[in-house]
Design a protein around this nucleic acid. Structure first.
Lengths: 126, 126
DNA sequence: TGGGGTACTCACCAATTCGTAAGTATGAGG
DNA sequence: CCTCATACTTACGAATTGGTGAGTACCCCA
């Protein structure tokens, strides 16, 4: 099989959860969908600068298979497809919130370390 | 540089946090260290069935560089090296807790779906 | 008749991650 | 002198992941 076979029996919950969010853009996709509720493919694409069409569809498909996002196709031309989070996806996002806060704190920490460095190097006096 | 340059400016906190925990064994390493407090290299290795020595050292080095684990070398022969979580690592673990709980719930959900399937096949009525 | 817009799909390649197996340094014990 | 134990390091290659660019189907509008 070339199907991604979600790596089998997990050792702990972290393991199982990381399995569904690891992927270069999945965190951001979750965030976008949580922010906007419903988004069409192209909107999502514009919202995630740098992602390729291929990866976006691939990640969306995997997340759909994992029961995180809902995909609604309207029988129109030109095509219209809307993505949104499922209830399960929303619970994941809620569970991810503390981690997001941790990440923000970490970014701040890093930045303040950089500032200290440039202080030492470039700002001998106020 | 061939140094892993933690991928630069992040778009959101989730992004920054996932960057430090993604890696096949990092979640488990965090868990082991949180469970046991202090562990030597070989203990950690035995605690994570399947990991190679190379990956274990590599992940530990990255986590050290990220300020998550502390590495203490005793000047003895044979060598003795002890790993433990830093305060920052412990806060990460705390932030990871809800995600772990979500993962556990997901595993249960998957399992019950399997049970339903076998029900459908083998137990037509209650 | 031709171009535009949407949401893909596919083939191919590059980069990153992971695993395997071997080698290193040191001193104690036989 | 030889081996053992620990905590690595290194070389190589396989597997996984991501990026690029082209192609598809459909209908509307000019």
């Amino acid at each position: 099989m070339t199907q991604t076979p979600r790596s089998g029996p997990y050792i702990c919950g972290i393991d199982a959860a990381l399995d569904v969010v690891s992927g270069k853009w999945k965190g951001l996709i979750l965030w976008e969908l949580d922010e906007h509720g419903v988004r069409r493919f192209a909107e999502l694409w514009r919202g995630l600068p740098g992602v390729s069409e291929k990866m976006l569809t691939q990640h969306l498909r995997e997340m759909e298979a994992d029961g995180l996002v809902h995909r609604r196709v309207h029988a129109e031309v030109p095509p219209r497809v809307e993505y949104s989070l499922t209830a399960h996806g929303r619970t994941l996002n809620a569970a991810l919130a503390p981690l997001g806060a941790w990440g923000v704190a970490r970014i701040r920490r890093e930045r303040s370390e950089l500032v200290e460095h440039s202080d030492a190097a470039a700002l001998p006096r106020p």
